[in-house]
Design a protein around this nucleic acid. Sequence first.
DNA 1: TGCCAGGCCGAAA
DNA 2: TTTCGGCATGGC
Length: 279
Amino acid sequence: MEIPFAPLAPSGVLSLMPTLFCGQCFRWRETEPGLFAGCSGTSPALIRQTENGVEISSAAPPAYWRRYFDLDTDYPAILRSFTGRHPFTEAALSYGAGLRVLRQEPWEALCSFLVSQCNHIGRIRQILDDLCRLFGKTYSWGGQVFFAFPSPTTLAALSLDDLAPLRAGYRAKYLLSAARHVADNPDFFSELAALPLKEARAAISALPGVGVKVADCFLLFGLHKLDAFPVDTWMKKAASYYDPPLSADAFGPYAGIAQQYIFYYIRSIESAGKGQSRW
DNA sequence: TGCCAGGCCGAAA
DNA sequence: TTTCGGCATGGC
């Protein structure tokens, strides 16, 4: 049976490859060239990039995915505010054209970056896929099987032994403590979202395994606080690519967006140097 | 075999 | 306040 696709974004507005594979999320996969399968919340979707733009097939209403891809935020205006900062930034903005910072489910984003610490992209994806396959609800759409991200309540009821098959190492205990905290405080994320960046950062940093890096990644990718700026050792290592060093001060309230374009660009340079294919 | 990976934690200086 | 070893795991 033919799968119905509906227009989501016109050409030039949203580019799926940089958006889904820039390191802000880990569970989308490209099932065939230009076609991507993934799940947000309880909503599986197939999304494809065509010459006319992006089209989507999902049971969830278009408004859900418009919000997920942040299509009601004026990215051209934001990106214009970055012009003139530095030639390296200009190159990054050009390279990642169409990249948008997703409005992911906060719980999934928190878990994703707890798992990400001191880990490879491939293993992050593997661990999160296994987590969903083992403990998430199953959905089918378009002839494909999808696994939703398990809820905090579901994970809170598990033990370290239950998580052992994930091979997540010391990160497993961070997942469990976060799950138990959120399960005990159902309004945790909505309360954090209402706080200013500094206070929200302090609150999320109180969880075990959440340091400066995980906190800022969560604030940017989970709570869509666009001024969060997840500088990390990797970014510092890459400082040789730009002078003066990258600073959140240079990008104002949208430092997180600028950072992500630059991060994506640097990753491409590093991968090319190693002779690796797209990550 | 050794190093590294979108780090964090706790102890020591 | 900064520095540093340990922490789990697996790919290269």
